[in-house]
C-alpha cells in the first residue's frame, strides 16, 4: 500500500507501523470520577469495521509523524491522511 503522507507525498506502507483505531487519541481524563469506567471502554472496546476506518499509522522509517489515515479496510482505498497532531488540535479526533 501507499500511504499519502500529508507532507511527503505517497510513501510505501512498509515504512510505517500500524496501531489501529484512531479513537485511541481520545484518551479519557484519568483524574475524572468515572475514569475507571471510561478507561475500560477506551482500552478494551474498539470498532473493527469492514469498510471506512480512521486509523493510526506511525512513519517509523520516515519523519516519525503519527498520521490519521482514513482507509476502506475492504478495498484498501485510502480516502485521506492527516498529521495526528493536526487532527487532534482541530478537535476532529
Amino acid at each position: 500500500m501507499l500511504i499519502p503522507h500529508p507532507l511527503l507525498g505517497p510513501r510505501d506502507s512498509s515504512e510505517f507501523s500500524y496501531l489501529g483505531d484512531a479513537s485511541l487519541m481520545d484518551r479519557p481524563d484519568g483524574m475524572a470520577p468515572d475514569a475507571a469506567e471510561r478507561f475500560h471502554d477506551y482500552v478494551h472496546l474498539r470498532d473493527n469495521p469492514a469498510g471506512i476506518h480512521r486509523e493510526l499509522w506511525f512513519h517509523e522509517q520516515g519523519d516519525r509523524s503519527w498520521l490519521v489515515v482514513t482507509r476502506n479496510t475492504v478495498t484498501h482505498e485510502i480516502l485521506g491522511a492527516e498529521l495526528a497532531r493536526d487532527a487532534r488540535k482541530g478537535g476532529a479526533a
Partner: peptide
Amino acid sequence: AGTIYRHMEFCRQCLWPE
C-alpha cells in the same frame, strides 16, 4: 528502545499535542 520511542511519540503527537 524502539517501541518506547514510538509510544512516547504517540503520547506527544496524538494525546497531548498542546
